[in-house]
């Protein structure tokens, strides 16, 4: 459990008085800021890979943390709609309010998938701006890194050259990594999977993986017994290769379906620190691809 405890560095000791204090809503953005800002930033992460980023509460520790932040970096696209607006209003911190340089919403810089045609709650807890789980397409990470570096320069112009160099360096390494991942993952094209929630849509779209169904009948709505039974019947004639889920998703429906279909049940890391060896963004994609490749052997 020691490793899990280490995943919640909610309040790090500032490295220096001049460090930019960053409040990251999710671990992927904390990791990206770390790549670009190095030791020029002190980072607080609001959630871990084991927490549903949509279902969090505006708890006291987060109010205390966001009060002193120079910048919040979150997904946006309504992922944090339940708690971030509340935190921002409680913060007493004008620099991080929407529209200010200290407010960075990553989803503003990428193309969203699954934009609902019908914005109606009968369709589940949908996000009018599209699927917010944008970070699992590494090309999105590249785009966001460009915008984020610019934002860091706005906030901390004294270190502009530092951020520029780190971003350029990150981008060239990241491009190489993308080419390598795409080559490694060629065999994954067409792989048929079932997912708990639509958490992997961007990953699947990137590698041409086929998510044939989700366990949730509608986004954010847990499946009932009858709905699971119907899904089992639907999938039985041509079972997918595996059931995948995020570390925070309820394991019960996934296990139930995997046992009935006699296919593996897989917890992909989903974000940084979602598995023991996934300590940065590179490892996140490395490990996710490796785990899926092992299904093919």
């Amino acid at each position: 459990m020691k490793s899990i405890a280490a995943l919640f560095p909610l309040l790090l000791i500032p490295l220096s008085a001049s460090a930019v204090e960053i409040f990251a809503c999710e671990p992927e953005w904390a990791a990206l800021v770390q790549e670009l800002a190095g030791d020029k930033a002190t980072i607080t992460v609001a959630t871990s890979a084991f927490q549903d980023p949509h279902r969090l509460q505006a708890k006291p520790s987060l109010i205390a943390a966001i009060r002193s932040a120079d910048m919040v970096i979150c997904t946006g696209a309504d992922l944090e709609i339940g708690w971030l607006p509340l935190l921002l209003r409680r913060a007493g911190n004008p620099g991080i309010q929407p529209g200010n340089p200290g407010n960075f919403m990553a989803a503003d810089y990428v193309r969203k998938l699954e934009i609902p045609k019908l914005v109606d709650r009968s369709q589940g807890d949908i996000h009018p701006q599209g699927n917010p789980h944008i970070h699992l397409d590494p090309r999105n990470i590249r785009r966001i890194s460009i915008a984020l570096a610019r934002r860091l320069i706005d906030l901390d112009p004294a270190n502009a050259a530092y951020y520029e160099t780190r971003q350029a360096d990150f981008q060239s390494r990241w491009n190489e990594a993308i080419d390598a991942w795409e080559q490694r993952a060629e065999a994954l094209a067409g792989l048929r999977l079932v997912s708990n929630h639509r958490s992997f849509s961007y990953f699947a779209a990137w590698l041409d993986i086929d998510i044939v169904a989700t366990l949730e009948p509608k986004p954010g709505i847990p499946a009932s017994g009858a709905q699971l039974a119907a899904l089992l019947e639907q999938l039985s004639p041509n079972p997918p290769v595996a059931v995948i889920r995020t570390p925070y998703a309820n394991e019960k429906p996934s296990r139930w379906l995997s046992a009935r279909l006699e296919i593996p049940e897989l917890t992909l890391p989903y974000t940084v620190n979602g598995a023991n060896n996934v300590t940065d963004l590179y490892a996140l994609f490395d490990e996710s691809i490796t785990m899926l490749q092992e299904l093919l052997q």
């Binding site: 084991f50 927490q51 509460q57 708890k59 925070y248």
Partner: peptide, 10 residues
Amino acid sequence: KWAPNGNSAS
């Protein structure tokens, strides 16, 4: 309040 790993969803 308690939730396993702070994940109150389930």
